[in-house]
């Protein structure tokens, strides 16, 4: 078993009186794609910036590639690739020019032309960066994040503002990167479908902590745990939540000695559970879906 790429314990962040992270525990294994999923304002960006070493945490333990990001030196930084949400730097540089320039900082960078080809930017190589479309700029940012062959790539809301086609192409790209380079990718998203599609493991950030963590399949099982059964008894509507609706319905049938009036069984989709979870996040205790 290799060391995890990222490990946090009881990570907390306060801005003045507001507590933005209230004890985040994360275990991101090396290799594969890990999604940090949560609604806007759940603390995803704060978490990722702490992990990148761009922001100092209030308290808690953090290890990224075995080092504390607050103490990480240049050698540690060189092992990370960072793609921020909204980068508009170097607007006057040409695409290939900037990629080649940033490659110089790394000991064994990717070949800029190969990287541009992989990201579908060959045609834009000579273009001035400020003239790129939003999707092209984003792909350039990923290329810039990848050029130093990082072991760990951070992608903060990578597909925000993409049209469906650009989003799909981007997803294909991420899958290819994770498969071929054996890199660890940590991405944040507020889109459940995106997390399900890309991630080997998902952590849902809600109410300033990790509410659930596990594989997409674990999460699906977690979602079913909240099945709802409704029926009418003594003229009044009744409702129960159960992880095993089948057993409850069997019991009701026996109790009624036949058909159950007004019987309804609802197994929530992952999306419903996710919405439910993020809505009532403040009352939720951390749950571990993984066995």
């Amino acid at each position: 078993m290799t060391d995890p790429a990222i490990r946090t314990r009881d990570l907390r962040m306060r801005y003045g009186r507001a507590e933005v992270l209230r004890g985040v525990d994360l275990d991101v294994p090396a290799g594969g794609v890990f999604a940090l999923l949560g609604p806007n304002g759940a603390g995803k960006t704060t978490t990722i910036e702490i992990l990148e070493g761009f922001r100092r945490r209030s308290s808690g333990e953090v290890a990224v590639l075995g080092a504390d990001p607050d103490e990480g030196g240049a050698a540690w930084r060189a092992r990370l690739g960072i793609v921020l949400q909204d980068w508009r730097d170097h607007p006057r540089w040409k695409v290939r020019q900037l990629l080649a320039h940033l490659a110089e900082f790394h000991p064994r960078p990717h070949d800029p032309d190969e990287l541009l080809a992989a990201l579908g930017l060959t045609e834009q190589a000579g273009k001035t960066i400020r003239d790129l479309s939003g999707g092209q700029r984003r792909r350039l940012d990923v290329a810039l994040g990848l050029v130093g062959r990082p072991e760990l790539l951070f992608l903060d809301e990578p597909t925000t503002g993409f049209d469906p086609r650009a989003r799909r192409e981007f997803h294909d790209l991420i899958e290819r990167l994770a498969r071929e380079d054996g890199m660890t990718i940590l991405l944040t998203t507020h889109d459940l479908a995106e997390a399900e599609r890309l991630a080997d493991r998902i952590a849902i950030l809600a109410g300033c902590r990790v509410a659930v963590t596990g594989t997409p399949r674990d999460l699906a099982a977690f979602a079913r745990a909240g099945s709802r059964v409704r029926w009418t008894e003594d003229g009044a509507p009744r409702e129960a939540r159960t992880p095993d609706p089948s057993a409850l319905v069997w019991e009701l049938h026996r109790r009624f000695g036949g058909p159950v009036p007004g019987l309804e069984v609802h197994r929530p989709s992952l999306e419903e559970s996710y919405l439910d979870l993020t809505r009532t996040a403040d009352d939720t205790e951390p749950v571990k879906a993984a066995a």
Partner: peptide, 16 residues
């Protein structure tokens, strides 16, 4: 450079 993020990007590079 600061507002556009060039400094932040270079800061994250060794020797940047």
């Amino acid at each position: 450079d600061r507002e556009e993020g060039a400094l932040l990007r270079l800061r994250a590079l060794p020797g940047g």
